[in-house]
Amino acid sequence: MVSIDIDASLFWQIGNFLLLLVALNYLLYRPIRGILRQRAEKVAQLNGDITSSEEGAKAKAAELEANLVQARRDGAEVREEIKNQGHGTEREIIDAATAEMEQTVANVREEIVGEIGQARQDLKGQVQSFGQELAQKLLGRSLQ
């Protein structure tokens, strides 16, 4: 059987064990805990940066969307304004063309009226000779 004697070597072993604990604490455990603490702080800082970056990106996206909506609204207003200007110009061109056409029609009517008057004058002058020729053809002899 094994027997344990309590003597001075037990105190030396307990002393060595405590000395080893203190040495390991200073040399190994504290630096590792410090590194782990720094790492946790860095992760927390990076998480904060990520959160602020996401919020900034969301704000930028909302601002861009608002700018896009405003640009579309401005574009629609400009398009309407140009369309209205086009309709005004179209109306002016149509009015000018209508006035020109009415003037041309009036000139043609005047020419026709003048030609009809001239034709009547010519026919009035020739009615006498037509009448004589018709009578000669109907009678079959000369009227003179």
Rank of each mutant, 00 (worst) to 15 (best):
M1H: 05
M1R: 07
D5W: 04
D7H: 01
D7S: 00
S9P: 00
L10P: 00
L10V: 06
F11W: 02
G15C: 08
F17D: 15
L18E: 07
L19T: 15
L20S: 08
L24P: 05
N25R: 08
Y26T: 15
L27M: 12
L27I: 15
L28S: 14
R33T: 03
R37Q: 06
A40K: 02
E41Q: 08
K42F: 07
K42E: 09
Q45F: 13
L46Q: 05
L46Y: 02
D49C: 09
E55C: 10
K60Y: 06
A61Y: 04
E63W: 05
E63S: 06
E65Q: 06
A66L: 08
L68Y: 10
G75D: 07
V78W: 14
E80S: 13
E80P: 01
N84A: 13
Q85T: 13
G86P: 00
G88I: 14
T89I: 13
E92C: 02
I94N: 04
A96V: 06
A96N: 04
M101Y: 08
G117E: 07
Q118C: 07
Q121N: 06
L123P: 01
K124C: 05
S129G: 05
L134F: 03
A135P: 02
K137H: 14
K137T: 13
L138R: 08
L138W: 09
L139E: 13
S142Y: 07
Q144W: 03
